[in-house]
Design a protein around this nucleic acid. Structure first.
Lengths: 142, 142
DNA sequence: GCTTGACCTGGAGCGCGCTCCAGGGTGTAG
DNA sequence: CTACACCCTGGAGCGCGCTCCAGGTCAAGC
């Protein structure tokens, strides 16, 4: 399949696919005589997996590490597993955080629900500084 | 409290706090005679809430909309509620996606677990194009 | 043969969310 | 009176992850 079709199938743009290849996230594609990239269906599974990593917040540098290991063959299996385990743990932690945030959102929304306007929804609670410091601003480690 | 202390308490940098004020995420802080910002403890709750929105993937533009509504007083309560509900739904959807991704990660890791190297871990499954297109690459709507 | 659209390369540009810097004032401990 | 940590402003710079562009080649239909 050509790059346009691959773009359609994956939802990524043609530019993004070429970019991914340039930086090494995708293996160098085979070329037709014309010079056009010709993709094998197997790349779909790989792009699917990359999408999972991306959705779960792994930065490109992390995916790149995984991609390089993968190209290193079976010898790198252990390191790949460790990488994925670390990432999985980070994702789990993030999901837990999201649940906490959802609870806050639900509470806030509930506060707006009553016919009477509740003062507490104008944000005058005082969270513990520690709790705050432990939560604000910090992405997942790839 | 001064900006340095606020930074410590919130985990945000002094620069970020000033930046947030500049763009309107934080209300203009009161100033001491010296010109130094002087914060009231109530700002902690607001920053805490902003942190929740950020953690849940709301872009700054979205927080800004909420912040402006908040400054618009009780009249904007309805719109604020709707904004939060929309966001909450997006977050829930994202959490669901993360669960699906976690399942994939777990499966992959399990594949590495056996003493024998399993071929399927070299990514040669073929996901349905539709499933792929519906998942790859797309942040939360603020 | 001509048109149209998909493809190629290399490199510049962009939006986001900060982060850093220069150049300067403040405040307090020794 | 000095040293040093902290604060101020305006504006430039940065890392990420694309996205777009110029200038050109290739392929399929009329």
């Amino acid at each position: 399949m050509k790059i346009g079709e691959l773009a359609q199938r994956t939802g990524l743009s043609v530019d993004t696919l070429r970019y991914y290849e340039r930086i090494g996230l995708l293996p160098r594609a085979a070329r037709a005589a014309s010079g056009h990239r010709e993709y094998d269906a197997s790349v779909l599974a790989w792009i699917d997996f990359l999408g999972r990593l991306k959705t779960t917040g792994m930065p490109i540098a992390g995916m790149l590490r995984y991609a390089r290991l993968r190209e290193g063959g079976p010898a790198t299996a252990d390191e790949r597993r460790r990488l994925l385990e670390t990432h999985r743990d980070a994702v789990r932690a993030h999901v837990a955080e999201l649940h906490a945030c959802l609870a806050v959102l639900d509470a806030k929304i509930a506060g707006y629900a009553g016919d009477a306007q509740v003062e507490t929804n104008d944000d005058h609670e005082h969270p513990s500084p520690d709790a705050l410091r432990n939560r604000v601003a910090r992405p997942l480690g790839g």
